[in-house]
Amino acid sequence: MGELLKVENLNVYYGSIHAIKDLSLTVNEGEIVTMIGANGAGKTTTMHAISGLLKPRSGSITYDGHLISRMDAYKIVTLGLAQCPEGRRVFSGLTVHENLELGAYSRKDSKAAVEDDFNMVFELLPRLKERRNQLAGTLSGGEQQMLAMGRALMSKPRMLLLDEPSMGLSPLLVKEIFRTIKRVNENGVTVLLVEQNAKMALNIANRGYVIETGSITMEGKASDLADDPKVKQAYLGGAA
């Protein structure tokens, strides 16, 4: 298990606001790594920097040996690093099937391989198969979330960035989405996960990072973090 993603001394500014300060993290091949932290701590900003939506002021991001911190977002995707943005951004005027097809857009391999991946995605996310001809905009929130993930998987990524996949979902769907993430990972996809639901995230992750006001303040094995009294107190609702 080698390092797949390495972020070193990342600094991101919004105007004069220093949003990310000297942040470093690594994700090894085959892992699920989660970033937890309060709102505004910089989790989404870090994700945006990794996926190329934001350009960092300084620091480096290396993915699979490529320096990606100055690369355009679409090129990063072709390297096999896919992002599943928060807020269920699906193409609502297109069908489920068409959405998935677009996910495979950046790939150059054969039709048969793409067809294989359709089957893989439908196996992982059986609800999408039932609804393959429905317009994405008419799906419920949870189904849209799954579609966004399915679309990301269609680019046949080695690594998946997931930003708040459980947001706005019912308890039942939250469980289902986490089960799906686990299954996707077991199929060989490395996952970097940002979640407010720290308990569930630490539950399926191998390792975790705690991020506070733009810096990593704690890191370690997910199970250790889940048992840490400070983490419990701050992020797991330990006080209640």
């Binding site: 932290g37 309060a38 709102n39 706005g168 720290a198 797991l236 609702g237 006080a239 209640a240």
Partner: peptide, 13 residues
């Protein structure tokens, strides 16, 4: 309408 969406457990409390 979903006031706690996107909040962590402590913020929710």
């Amino acid at each position: 309408d979903e006031p706690a969406a996107g909040m962590n457990p402590n913020e929710t409390i």
